[in-house]
């Protein structure tokens, strides 16, 4: 394994997202632990499913990190960083009582910028048939699902649905 800038980027992003989520959950909690955990686990599944469909043969639109196949640093990226990032966005959505369309549009734009930074400066992704503009619509789709799931979960938890 070549340990270079993209591995360092994964480590830094990992601690940044994990630290932010821990801080938000302990100091400014808006959702219960089980609720947040459900959201994170859902995103672990969603990430793995979409990575499986989009990044493996026969579709194979892009590579993550250095290789065309799985490697060690895929683990923190897919199992922690992506799901926890969604948790942070959903925290903002609930804490600031934003409208769904606002968090979807702004969140997708922010994620697009972050993806461009990681791709341009740290070579975290190698596009094969993918395009940066596709990512915007892809993030909109992912955020729409997450926002609706969060709203549904939060309503049920708050109303004490058994």
């Amino acid at each position: 394994m070549v340990f270079d800038k993209n591995e360092w980027a994964v480590i830094v992003i990992f601690f940044l997202t994990e630290g932010t989520a821990t801080y938000l959950h302990t100091k400014h909690r808006v959702m219960r632990t089980a609720e947040g955990l459900a959201l994170i686990l859902f995103n672990v599944y969603f990430t793995s499913l979409l990575e499986f469909i989009l990044a493996t043969k026969p579709v194979d639109l892009y590579d993550t990190i250095d290789r065309n196949y799985g490697e060690l640093f895929d683990l923190p990226l897919e199992m922690v960083t992506y799901p926890v990032t969604m948790y942070i966005f959903m925290h903002v959505f609930l804490a600031w009582s934003l409208k769904k369309r606002h968090i979807v549009l702004l969140g997708a734009a922010l994620l697009l910028i972050l993806e461009w930074i990681t791709m341009h400066f740290f070579s975290l992704f190698t596009y094969k048939g993918w395009n940066l503009m596709y990512s915007y619509f892809f993030y909109m789709f992912v955020l729409t699902i997450n926002v609706n799931l969060t709203e549904w979960l939060h309503k049920r938890v708050v109303t004490g649905h058994e």
Binding site: L41, F42, V44, Y45, T47, S48, L49, E51, F52, T56, G70, D74, L75, E78, M79
Partner: peptide, 9 residues
């Protein structure tokens, strides 16, 4: 989630 990720890996 776990099954999908592990199968993918």
């Amino acid at each position: 989630g776990m099954n999908t990720w592990l199968f993918n890996f």
